[in-house]
Design a protein around this nucleic acid. Structure first.
Lengths: 260, 260
DNA sequence: GCTTGACCTTGACGTTGCGTAAAGGTGTAA
DNA sequence: TTACACCTTTACGCAACGTCAAGGTCAAGC
């Protein structure tokens, strides 16, 4: 079955402008153009558009979507299974919002009290995205989605005070890292202190700590330019230094240094 | 409890830029500014931001949100109840998407076949919005949400061919209206034909027809500039003419003119 | 008191993903 | 042939911020 622009737009519930724009940016090109120059879409494009709409619904920007669906190694069925998982997550977030509004209604009717931070349960998607950015999909692939998902859920429940502490600890990690990095000894006292502070910082969002995950995250800081740039502001080579300190820290945890 | 920009941003999961932007456009102004010019937000602003975020989540543009929440007659608890209803609708749409992806997975695994239009179930929010625009909240308030909700659901199941017929019928209404309007007699043969065609057009989206609803919709065409402008393109005063024709049609349906 | 870093302000430019409109060509039924 | 629905490309504009720069303020530490 073939479709021109309007037919496909109606079928999919998008605008004709959207389809032309998607063609323009190379996201969804028609199967062919007829002699009049009309775009003609077929079954392959139908399936591709469906994938695009799922990704769009899940919040990915079009450039990312383009990279994914145009990859020769793109696996349709696997992507669908991923969509399903993510849609179920979205449903959970929506449930949080529904619960929030119901709680707020009760509070408005004087049946309960509500803390300020509770009023925004379910809205903190940005925090989740930041967290996702922090941990990235490498960690997901290596240690499974559960780790990150639980981390997200935990973050959502963090109070304002805790969040402040979390940020202060992050600062302390950075400060100590800068100092230790200048001294240049990852195995030294300050290097190991940095690693321990980093572990403590992780405890705010990780449901369970493991040395492997800690070391993996540190490695990612080196491999990923975003993190390298973030840490290297403190001291040149700081990301690599932190990785070294954490690798040492996780290999032989010096109980005697900090006590447990 | 008071918050500066960053504190509130963290609490609510939005950016500081968002809060400043909301102040700038008059959507959410701080309680006051301190001597340094810092924005200071309090409990009232907390509650208002929560409402804003609910409306935002439900897809309203900021200008609309501003009009709503800044209205002196704004009723917080009533708005919350409305949010709840709409969030439940959103959840149903999400369920459609989840069902869609599961069906697509089955089809990909060869367990079932899937029609092209089925692949987009749940994505047609734009069609729903258009339909909402058509019927508007006046109809909702007058005849209850069920009428419109069922209409939306019905539209979602419309096939491509049916949709095309729907649009052709809409065109025919407009053509006949133009002709009848020129003749200037709402009770005349062409006026009544227009009303009948209009009724037939409604049958595509209304689960059940009632004369009262039909007349009410026609009245809304006159009262609402958007619709008046749409119809008056065919002939000056066409919206009013159509209203008159429909009022007559629904009061005394001339069976002998068209047969039933 | 000075320094430093976190946080604040305003102003401004840019981005993404389209919506809208204009000008002109194509397809098809009457 | 005509009229209307649909197609094309081009282009401008917009909403809702993200990002950055320049400069002021706050508070803890030395």
């Amino acid at each position: 079955m073939e479709y021109t622009v309007q037919k496909l737009a109606q079928l999919a519930g998008v605008s004709t402008r959207t389809l032309r724009y998607y063609d323009e940016i190379g996201l969804l090109e028609p199967a062919r153009k007829n002699s009049a120059g009309y775009r003609i879409y077929g079954g392959k494009e139908i399936d591709k558009l469906q994938q695009i709409l799922f990704y769009r619904e899940l919040g990915l920007d079009l450039d990312n979507i383009k990279n994914i669906v145009n990859d020769p190694a793109f696996d349709g069925p696997a992507a669908l299974r991923s969509h399903r998982k993510k849609l179920l997550e979205r449903r959970r977030q929506l449930d949080l919002l529904i619960n929030n509004v119901e709680t707020t209604i009760s509070a408005a009717e004087g049946e309960s009290k509500m803390a300020d931070n509770e009023k925004f349960e379910g809205f903190k998607q940005k925090l989740i995205d930041d967290n996702e950015q922090h941990y990235g999909k490498e960690i997901r692939e290596k240690y499974g989605d559960d780790t990150v998902d639980k981390s997200n859920a935990k973050m959502l429940n963090m109070s304002s005070e805790k969040y402040e502490e979390f940020r202060r600890l992050e600062q302390e990690v950075r400060d100590t890292l800068a100092e230790a990095c200048e001294m240049g000894d990852p195995a030294g006292e300050l290097g190991q202190k940095t690693a321990a502070l980093h572990k403590e910082w992780l405890s705010f969002t990780w449901p369970a700590y493991s040395k492997e995950a800690h070391a993996g995250l540190a490695q990612m800081y080196v491999d990923d330019e975003r993190f390298a740039a973030y840490y290297d502001k403190a001291c040149a080579g700081a990301a690599q230094f932190l990785r070294d300190a954490i690798v040492i820290y996780t290999a032989v945890e010096p109980d005697s240094v900090y006590g447990k």
